[in-house]
């Protein structure tokens, strides 16, 4: 069964402040969320240098995520993971014409200011890096550059949107090549939305009670219940390693996919990247999926999430 119900999201306006036309201040939320809408149905690939960025662009990536180490290496190396060197980011920006995203640490608003000054197209306030603030995420509304943030459930997604995120992704479990956590987070969001819809049918009181329970803004919760989906674009991320993984997440209702370590930690990166792009477009067509899954060489070895200690998991960072 195909559960994709993306069609209802469009043309929404969020209760976010917007600048007047033509002023050099913060762009309207429609402009920030608009780029995410342009990325839908596409694959955003992690790259660590200009050469990989070109491979990603040639393979049909709709954007690249510029970073110094892919999550699998961050996991292996340990230590504090921070924003990438601006020099690296500039090299990647110069190499490709597609949007370039970059990661900042949770709560590290100065890293965000730096990335904005570099002209990054989207900032990922990411649990893959070491959090810089254990209480606050970045206040994102005041930035000109739009933000994407990870979530494990609806409450977390709506807290990020209230802070100004214009795009959401599942946290999954980055750098593992195991899709189980991304699936869990996507299903949890959907179940939470069903609960919100039931609460909406019951009445305003029930909706407010649910907003209190999951810790989010009641207005955003109501809007989500009415739409039957998140009010912004929602991508899958964290553990996607094969064309079938990408199509699985699309059939579960995601709008597109991030692939981190899955491509450049595999045997034939260019071929795998192209196959995942094809699979994300033709996610409902099993014949095409069979074709593009063929002969891709070795997938990333991966880590089984079931055998990981909770402290090893990145998804628990942020709240």
């Amino acid at each position: 069964m195909v559960m994709n119900d993306n069609g209802t999201m469009s043309n929404t306006t969020l209760p976010t402040s917007s600048a007047a036309n033509g002023t050099p201040s913060v762009p309207t939320f429609a402009v920030k969320a608009g780029l995410a809408q342009m990325l839908k149905g596409g694959v955003i690939m992690d790259v660590v240098n200009a050469e990989q960025a070109r491979i990603a662009e040639e393979a049909g990536a709709c954007a690249v995520m510029a970073l110094e180490r892919v999550p699998a290496d961050i996991r292996k190396d340990g230590g504090v993971a921070r924003m990438s060197d601006p020099h690296l980011i500039k090299e990647i920006q110069a190499a490709v014409t597609i949007p370039v995203m970059a990661k900042a640490r949770i709560g590290h608003f100065v890293e965000c200011q730096i990335l904005e000054a570099l002209g990054i197209d989207y900032i990922d306030e990411s649990e893959v890096l070491t959090p810089a603030d254990d209480t606050y995420h970045v206040e994102k509304s005041g930035f000109r550059v739009p933000f994407v943030c990870g979530c494990r459930n609806l409450g977390e997604a709506l807290r990020r949107i209230a802070e100004g995120a214009a795009m959401i992704r599942t946290k999954g479990e980055a750098g593992t090549g195991d899709v189980v956590e991304a699936v869990k987070h996507m299903r949890t969001v959907k179940q939470d939305i069903s609960r919100a819809q039931a609460a909406l049918a019951e009445g305003e009181g029930a909706l407010r009670a649910l907003a209190r329970e999951i810790g989010c803004d009641a207005v955003l919760l109501k809007q989500t219940a009415e739409l039957g989906r998140l009010p912004v674009v929602n991508f899958a991320a964290g553990g996607i390693a094969t064309p079938a993984d990408a199509a699985l997440m699309m059939q579960l209702g995601c709008d597109g996919v991030f692939v981190g370590s899955g491509i450049f930690k595999s045997g034939n990166a260019a071929k795998r990247a192209k196959a995942i792009v094809q699979a994300t477009t033709h996610y409902q067509d099993a014949k095409v999926l069979a074709q593009c899954s063929e002969g891709l060489g070795e997938a990333m070895v991966g880590i089984n999430c079931g055998t990981m200690a909770p402290t090893e998991k990145m998804a628990g960072r942020g709240w």
């Binding site: 993306n6 999201m9 469009s10 149905g41 477009t281």
Partner: peptide, 11 residues
């Protein structure tokens, strides 16, 4: 509907 904002147009 290969990639991008196709659902928005359909609406």
């Amino acid at each position: 509907a290969l990639q991008g904002a196709f659902l928005e147009h359909l609406v």
